[in-house]
Design a protein around this nucleic acid. Structure first.
Lengths: 395, 395
DNA sequence: TTGAAAGCGCTAACAT
DNA sequence: ATGTTAGCGCTTTCAA
């Protein structure tokens, strides 16, 4: 010790302004030491109060909290991390930007975010994290290099866990994270042999919803426009649709797009050529549904009178198109919030910046949640959400 | 020193496995100490090599680098931050989510990200940061509470600087950051009295571009659909358009939307009622332009033959609409990358996770950039980008 | 229940 | 040019 330590109760408030840490002032950030001095207790005690540890005399607790308020003390993340070996941060990893394949300027990584879907996830995550004072570290992971970086970042403790959003079926990252023992929660079901918590939509059910709606409308000559083959969600949507139609004794003509507007247009053109009298179309995402509408109209079909069209996702494009698209909505924001819950459940004690448990008052009132237990022991939790049909003008 | 130091070349690899840090193995993360032992030097020397400090004997440097590779050493962020007082992170703060006003579930904060514009910015930032091994911490800031949290996070050293994306004119956050001395770079010009680095588009020039294109096409009865009054960018676009038309001796009928599709439709309807024979429309963003197209078509106008339409932003909606929208593009990704450059210029030594300067080889080859000097001393730098007319089918 | 003391892994003076 | 030595601010045994 250098500055007047050991002065005990004698070392009054004057000491606060001593040394390099002018507590509470703009000059220097107050430390535990400053608070301890101001409260007339030891650093250890202050630490206990700040971290909400029991076994602290109520009177002293009061005094410390006053001192904390007076000095404007806020825990130093780095120092805390150094000893606890936890960063108090979580990584939000997004795959499927397409940057890997192209790398070009135009086919730029940012494209992901052009898809409102990712935006909704990000929003849901930020919102779910906010009450805990935690902010996500954003990372893209498309190339092998990216993945190595993500893994390294996490294993090094840059973040205590990861929220992973990927649509590709054969993404190696989930396996890598699981193998490395990094706490992670996926948006979408992980590969069969990868034991990771995840949330997902009942995609088949969504497809079935669309089918039943079309059938109920009296549509009899149905077609479906599927998405990329390597996106499981897309295949399930289509399968759910086809199964439901088959169950009703119908048949479905199948086309394929690539989740883009052009893809939808192209597929629709083909479908229309094959079967000019079709009266119902289900596309595995909204953008393709929109493309289908464009082509249908171009061919003089009225929507929904001649042909009814249903999309999937309820992206912003759905409501912004004319006719406004009937679609299957996935509660993306809720799903994202649930991911956060799952991750924070596993990684106990992720508390962000504020981190003054005793002061901020407990663990933030979580919402009821979609009725599902917390992960039992170490077995991966899976929370499945129900799709919802949003009926607008196109069907 | 405790373990056989000073054994020189004699202290071979055996030492690596010593102590609690079984270097390179899954068990424990190797520390500087481990590397030092492996290389037969002191921690200080290893630190120097790792941080690329000169004054290190080439031979020793080699040895250390080998040891680093052998042990799989990676610097501990927390420890480094604790002493350097730098986090090596940057915050990406996004405003304008609208969560403040509504707070509701549907008008959810995530909405921002539904707008592809923000997505492009985020993508550009992530991309610009990546070469430096830095990842952005994502934060929303709409409410006063949010702003306090952002400020606190930054002043506490959660991040060394901020990239701020806000469209609102009277956002208090820039001022708060400037006042607090937090290094920050804005997307869009800050309030007059706030001395902060920023990038922006020459919006007026963009409006003028649209005007000249319409004029050159022979359009004579022009209308403009402006956006929200509190978004300076929107007003400048309109002003640029009107000025250019006026300069050519023309007049412009003015309508107003709110940057939404509905707003565009509504404004267009009004405009059309006022002046049924108009032949050219400029909307301050793509979504409104799209709305205008919808209404025009609804009223039997052919685009671009009867009425030519130009939007602004070149959002994904522009290319996805039919007719494909002619629009004014802002190089958002480049602008975002420039923000990163500006911030990293100011905050010297932001280096992410990897941080092994000596090993990774220099400061990453930055691209030529939009020809603009680095901030001179402490005066705020402003990098303005040129808009570009993207001619498609609507005009 | 509280305090004293020992570090967490790293950088930065200060010696050498 | 390299090594020694202090801590950075915090949590956490271990005593009292």
């Amino acid at each position: 010790m250098d500055t007047g330590r050991g002065t005990g109760t004698d070392g009054r408030a004057g000491a606060v302004a001593r040394g390099r840490g002018r507590a509470g002032e703009a000059g220097g950030v107050p430390t535990l030491e400053d608070v301890a001095r101001a409260a007339g207790v030891s650093r250890a005690t202050v630490s206990r109060v700040v971290n909400g540890v029991r076994n602290v005399d109520p009177a002293i607790q009061q005094a410390v909290q006053r001192a904390v308020a007076a000095t404007g003390y806020v825990p130093n993340r780095a120092a805390r991390s150094l000893v606890t070996r936890r960063s108090g941060a979580v990584a939000l990893v997004v795959c499927g930007t397409g940057s890997a394949a192209t790398g070009g300027r135009d086919e730029f990584a940012a494209r992901v975010f052009q898809d409102p879907f990712f935006g909704r996830v990000v929003g849901g995550v930020v919102r779910g994290l906010r009450p805990r004072g935690v902010h996500p570290v954003l990372m893209f992971a498309d190339t092998g290099e990216d993945r190595a970086e993500v893994l390294s970042y996490l294993t090094r403790g840059g973040a205590d866990g990861a929220l992973l959003v990927t649509t590709r079926a054969r993404d190696p990252l989930p396996g890598m994270l699981a193998a490395a023992g990094v706490p992670a929660v996926l948006f979408a079901r992980p590969p069969a042999d990868v034991p990771l918590d995840h949330v997902d939509l009942r995609h088949r059910e969504g497809g079935a919803l669309a089918a039943r709606h079309l059938l109920a409308r009296g549509c009899a000559r149905l077609a479906v426009i599927g998405g990329p083959a390597d996106i499981p969600a897309s295949r399930e949507r289509v399968a759910g649709f086809c199964d439901a139609v088959a169950a009703a004794g119908g048949r479905v003509r199948a086309g394929t797009g690539d989740f883009t507007l052009d893809g939808g247009e192209h597929a629709m053109r083909l479908l229309l050529a094959e079967q000019p009298d079709l009266d119902g179309v289900f596309a595995a995402n909204d953008l393709m549904a929109q493309g289908a509408c464009l082509v249908l109209r171009e061919h003089g079909r009225r929507i929904p009178d001649d042909v009814a069209v249903i999309g999937f996702d309820d992206s912003s494009a759905a409501a912004a198109s004319r006719p406004r698209l009937t679609t299957v909505r996935q509660p993306v924001e809720d799903m994202a919030a649930e991911m956060v819950r799952l991750l924070l459940d596993r990684v106990t004690g992720i508390t962000g910046v504020t981190g003054i448990t005793g002061v901020t008052g407990a663990a933030a009132g979580a919402d009821p949640g979609p009725a599902k237990g917390a992960p039992t022991g170490t077995e991966p939790a899976a929370v499945l959400f129900a799709p919802e049909l949003v009926v607008r003008d196109s069907a």
